[in-house]
Structures are given as structure tokens and as C-alpha cells.
Design a protein around this nucleic acid. Structure first.
Lengths: 219, 219
DNA sequence: ACAAAAGTGTTGCTGTTACACCCATGC
DNA sequence: GCATGGGTGTAACAGCAACACTTTTGT
């Protein structure tokens, strides 16, 4: 292996994950107390360093798996944060990733073991370094995407009611939506499929359960 | 300076620039022949390494200035490319940036000195490493942005005709647009201002010149 | 019986598309 | 006078927003 670039400086490259979940009709994300210096004990996103034998995207997948126990979850690059002062001591450049999960799939044991919390968007604490900025960018990205791309169901279980789906949209967009208009729009979406299952838990009358259809998303 | 993370590996971090210009009614970008190993002589985007005393965004600004001689040009992060095999020899992670310039502001001397070319989107050569992917991502981003954000004028001189503006949109979106509908829409945009100047160069009758108004973009 | 959530249509408005001709000027 | 690009309006249409009541059933 020749060293073509040896006259330049290297930097640590890390990934930080904004994992969104939908719970209690609120959009929340996972954050914990930092276990490393610098910033030990501060609120922070869960992250990790990019290893020598993995791509940056693979590192994000790995870290997301460590964090959630889940595989193949929705994940997108948010952006790269490379200010000089973002981490004292050593130069660290961080690539932020957003992920969407169904909180029911998340093993609560992880919260205790890793001392993580679901943080509601209304109560975001001051976080380590530029992590607040990462979260803000991720939220903006999610808001843009949820109206143009089929991703909202990623925050729900396999089978969901239209009311739940609407609640997700309302929580993400931080607005109220008209029930009839919302349902009308959903009817035209090819990838939201009505099933013959009925949910009897959340209402006395019972609500039809829908599911997402992967097959119709190839466009 | 303590070394908190010393057990992890570092990587070279570079920036690569996709500089778009509009010329001959076509959308083009700057590319040249690579001057470094690996990949010497291959078609490549212009790039550079992130220095120890600059942020990643600052590095992109600096590289864009080297490349174009221009300051304060429109610039956005496209994404970070961190596959293992993207550059042989050493691990290099690259952050791609897109920039928009008015080709008339570009000093043609640079083309010769740096052996650069304006490459039309229709004739993109096979490029070094993942640079083709970077360009594709940048084009997709530009197409999305041009319909939602006031950026098209960045590709034009300070004063421009509506026909020129329409040509920019057509070149970026790779579609034909209806002249009357286009002009109707532009009339409603608060940041495109009609001036009393008239362009007599491109038509016998003369066309009204418009300009972009920064003040009305604060929303 | 009543509380609680599910479900359902219509109307007006707004923005988008499709479409064809006259205007001013340089040559 | 004619070729060249500049400039303009209208009608159909689609998508979006506003709006209130009935249904089902567990308690």
C-alpha cells in the first residue's frame, strides 16, 4: 500500500445517529449521556467511529444495530459536520444519520443498559458539541421527506390505523390535519393498503388496519 | 492536547466540488484531468484535502476559490462518500459540494492553467472513483432545489431576461416549459424583479432585464 | 344512554396546464 | 418586408382546503 497523500493530515471520522420514534403521539429521538471524554456525562446522540474495514454507511448501520438491536431499518445521511471546535482535543469529523424505527420493536432493555432516553422534540436538552444542530437538521429533513416520500409508516408497526398514521404526520409536521382530507389523500396512495384486519384496542367501534406495500414503491 | 480517541484509526478527509454553469443553453460542470496518484490522468472533479486549521465547509470554500477565483458563491453539501474502495492506497473520505456560478464570471484562463473543461451533462465521461455518483447526486439535488428554492439566477449574470431564466430551468430539469406559464409563475415570485434595463443583444426587439432581489428571500 | 373514536362527501378556491397570435426591430 | 425573438390571456382541469354529522360498540 503506497501512501500517496502522506503530506496531509488525517482526522477521526465518526457517525452520529438520530433515531426517531413515535410514542405517546409525539415524535421522539434517542439520546443518552456521553460515556467518553470529551463531554463525559453531557446529553448526546449515540455514535461511533468509522472502522478501517467498513464504509461510512456501513459504520452507521453497525452503530444503529448496536443502538437498537434492529437491522435493515430506514436510514439516510443527514450531513457532515466538520467544524474545528466541535470536539476538543482531536479533530473529529462526524457524519450524521437519521433513522426511523417503530418504538415497539425497540427493546426497552437497551434504554437501561445504555442509559438512553426517548427525548421529545419539545424538550430537547442542550447537547454535546453540535448535536443539537444535527437534530435540527434531521427534523427539517424529515419534515420535507414525509410529504414527498413514503416513509411515515416506518415509525409505525406493520399494521396500523389511519388515525395512527395521521398522528405520525401531525407529530412530525407539528400541525393539525383534517381527518377527511387526510384519509382522502391516503386512499390515492398506492403503497398504503387496507387489510381486513381490525384493531379493537384503541376504540370501541374498531378501526381498519392498513399496511405498507413495498412492491408499489418502485418508481 | 489530549488524545481521547487514540485507539481509533484516522482517515484523510477531502472535499470535491461539482461546479455547475450554464452555457450554450446547456447545464455544464467543471472537470479536469487528475494530477495526483491514484487515478492520475483520469477525468475527475476538482477537490482538495481538508486542512488541520479549517472546517470542512471552509475547505470547500477555499477549494472553490482556487478553482473559480470567485468568493461567496452558492454552495451546498451534497453528501459524504466513504466507501472503502473509493481510492486505492489510503483511506480517503470525501465530502461533495455543489456550487452554482455564472460562467461569465469565470476566468477562462483557469481552464487552461488547470486543464479544466466545462462538461455537458449529456456527455459525462467515466470519472475517477465515485465522482460520477457525486455528479449524479448533485444533479438530482439541483433538480429538486430549483423548483423549491430561489437558486436558478445563481447560474446567470446579475441582469437576465426571462427567456434566459427559462432556458436555465429547462436545461436543469431537462424538459421543455411553456413560455406563458413560466412567465406567469415568475411574475408571482417576489424575488425576481423587473428592471427598466433592456437587453438588445439577443433579440432585435429587445428584452426586459430582470434581477434577483436578496431582500425578499428572507422567509 | 352515553362516551369515544371511526368513518364518510360536497363545495369553493387555487394553482396548473394547454394552447396561438401580435409586437417591435434589425437587417 | 421578413425573419427573429419578445410578449401576452383564457378556459378546462386537478388538487387542496374548509366544513359536520352518522356509525359502532364497550361501559
Amino acid at each position: 500500500m503506497s501512501k500517496y497523500y502522506s503530506q496531509y493530515a488525517k482526522a477521526y471520522v465518526s457517525v452520529d445517529c438520530i433515531v426517531f420514534g413515535f410514542d405517546d403521539n409525539k415524535l421522539k429521538f434517542l439520546a443518552g449521556r456521553r460515556k467518553l471524554q470529551p463531554g463525559y456525562g453531557e446529553w448526546a446522540l449515540y455514535g461511533g467511529f468509522v472502522g478501517t474495514e467498513e464504509s461510512v454507511d456501513d459504520a452507521a448501520s453497525r452503530v444503529l444495530h448496536e443502538l437498537t438491536g434492529l437491522k435493515d431499518i430506514y436510514m439516510k445521511q443527514v450531513g457532515t459536520f466538520g467544524e474545528l471546535n466541535r470536539s476538543e482535543g482531536e479533530r473529529v469529523i462526524s457524519v450524521a444519520y437519521v433513522a426511523l424505527i417503530n418504538v415497539k420493536d425497540y427493546d426497552e432493555k437497551n434504554l437501561l443498559e445504555k442509559e438512553l432516553h426517548w427525548v421529545s422534540l419539545e424538550n430537547i436538552p442542550k447537547m454535546f458539541a453540535d448535536h443539537n444542530e444535527m437534530v435540527n437538521t434531521a427534523v427539517r429533513m424529515l419534515r420535507r421527506r414525509i410529504i414527498t416520500e413514503p416513509i411515515s409508516f416506518q415509525l409505525l408497526p406493520e399494521y396500523f390505523t389511519l388515525t395512527q398514521l395521521q398522528n405520525v404526520h401531525e407529530a412530525v409536521l407539528n400541525t393539525e390535519l383534517d381527518k377527511r382530507n387526510f384519509r382522502k389523500k391516503v386512499k390515492h396512495l398506492p403503497y398504503i393498503i387496507k387489510t381486513d384486519k381490525i384493531d379493537k384496542l384503541t376504540s370501541k367501534r374498531g378501526a381498519a388496519l392498513y399496511r405498507f406495500d413495498d412492491a408499489t414503491t418502485i418508481d
